[in-house]
Design a protein around this nucleic acid. Structure first.
Lengths: 190, 190
DNA sequence: TGTTGAAAAGGACATTTGTCCCAATTCATA
DNA sequence: TATGAATTGGGACAAATGTCCTTTTCAACA
């Protein structure tokens, strides 16, 4: 549920240690919007620390959360390849430290550094692979199974992510989530 | 709904024309499984012609279709980067001609051919970008809107793709799809 | 300490969607 | 042409989910 890509983060920090100055740190407090929808940016971002949510809202204000991103995950890179404006909003949940790199430097690294290139490819592969089974699973199984599964994987999740966000991630309403949670508890109690 | 990546296809055919023999053609009849779930392969595939579906089935036999892929879209490339076995099944819908390239050659091209490398990155970016709004939209709007939208974009879709597949793509049952379609017709009639 | 607002919980009812059927139609092919 | 399988369409009912609201909890802070 909370994606990471430690390998990429470590490699970036190794590059920094070598004296490369392409990556600039920036910090965000909780609930700040880092990237808005439908705008053009000139930086690619990689999370050093903290948790962010990637989401879309419809005109009724309903959110649908695509992913929660954490250490080593990048965002803003798709726009480099597609040439299109951003299509998701990215917002910090906790305090967040990110590295940002300009499109120019990002492209240069991609072309000159094979290892970096490969890690970026790998990062994108991660994004694709996690989405497929997730959406499939959420469609095929009752909410209850999804939540049980989620709790098994991240028992502490409610301490970091609000229920509303969990519901948006599951593509359901908060009411449904609560109903299901209390059903699960009743079953456990038996 | 049916993804293409013509630029990549054209580039591959240009490479072929130059005498590069990395890409081998293979043909499939309708309803053949090209890639199974959870297996290891040693080729990356690019569609030259025809339509395929990418899907997962759960143990009850319910399918969830991720995407329909057509000209220029690749598959099997994610496994090169993740090192994991395949996670989706790929099946031909129409007659399909594909180019396949071995992992070895694929990796070599990625490293030596910047343009190819960029096109692969772009292809992956496409896969990610299309998924996000799609799943969001499908969660936030009634089925009806999804279907109306789909019909606007692909008026002839039912001639190529069965209703069952359309339903699986929308993440609903065939019954729901039919119900909604007849609702739409009744509204149109008024 | 009391106030306020965000987050969480849940009641009551409406709506949507799924499940389980069965019937009609199409289509490949024996 | 006959046959059976796949596809399509839809009725009736059950179950899941959403909508709308109210209440509770809790932490921040004047």
């Amino acid at each position: 549920m909370i994606r990471t890509h430690i390998e990429l983060l470590e490699y970036i920090e190794a590059l920094n240690a070598k004296g490369l100055d392409y990556f600039k740190e920036e910090t965000f407090e909780p609930k700040q919007v880092i990237i808005e929808e439908n705008k053009r940016y000139s930086y690619v971002y990689i999370i050093k620390k903290g948790i962010t949510k990637v989401y879309l809202s419809d005109e009724n204000g309903k959110d649908f959360i695509q992913e929660f991103l954490s250490e080593g995950m990048e965002f803003g890179e798709l726009e480099v390849f597609s040439g299109k404006p951003s299509f998701c909003r990215i917002e910090s949940i906790t305090n967040v430290i990110i590295y940002k790199i300009s499109y120019t430097h990002f492209n240069r690294l991609l072309e000159t550094d094979k290892h970096f290139n490969r890690l970026v490819l790998k990062g994108m592969a991660k994004k694709i692979s996690y989405k497929a089974p997730r959406h499939s699973y959420q469609h095929s199984y009752p909410i209850e199974d999804n939540i049980v599964k989620l709790k098994e994987m991240y028992p502490e999740i409610e301490k970091v992510i609000t229920k509303k966000d969990i519901a948006s991630y599951l593509g359901i309403t908060l009411r449904s989530l609560n109903r299901t949670l209390s059903d699960i508890n009743h079953k456990d109690a038996k």
